[in-house]
Amino acid sequence: MNVPDDLRYSESHEWLRLSDDGTGVMGISDHAQAELTDVVYLELPEIGRSVAKGEAIAVIESVKAANDIFSPVSGEVVEVNEGLAEAPEPVNEDPYGAGWMIKIKLSDPAEVDSLLNAESYRERLA
C-alpha cells in the first residue's frame, strides 16, 4: 500500500496534507480506497461548514455500502473537490492527488500532532 511520507493519517484512514497558510487538504488513504473499491458516489460538505476533529464530514459510497468520512482536524471547510461529485473515480485511481476531497482551515493546528505519521500508519496497516 502506498503511504506517502509527507502526510499525516487518522485511525479511520483519512490523510491530511498541511500547508504553510494554516489550511490542510484531506482525502482517504490508498488502503481505504482499496478496501472500499468501486467508489460510485461521494457526498461532500458545504463550503463554510465548521467541523470538529472526528466528526463525520462526508459520505462515500461503494456499490455495496455507504461509509462516513471523518474530519482529521477541527476547522472550517474552505474548498471541496467538486469534480468528484460527478466522477468519483480519482478516489480509487489517485487517492493522494486528484482524489483529494476537502480543504479545511484549521482552528487548532496543534491537533495535527495527534495524527499518525506515515511510519505509525504503516504499522497500523501491517
Binding site: T37, D38, S62, V63
Partner: peptide, 9 residues
C-alpha cells in the same frame, strides 16, 4: 466472498 477484484468489474 462479497467480492474479489470489485463488484462492477
Amino acid at each position: 466472498p462479497i467480492q474479489y477484484a470489485g463488484i462492477v468489474a
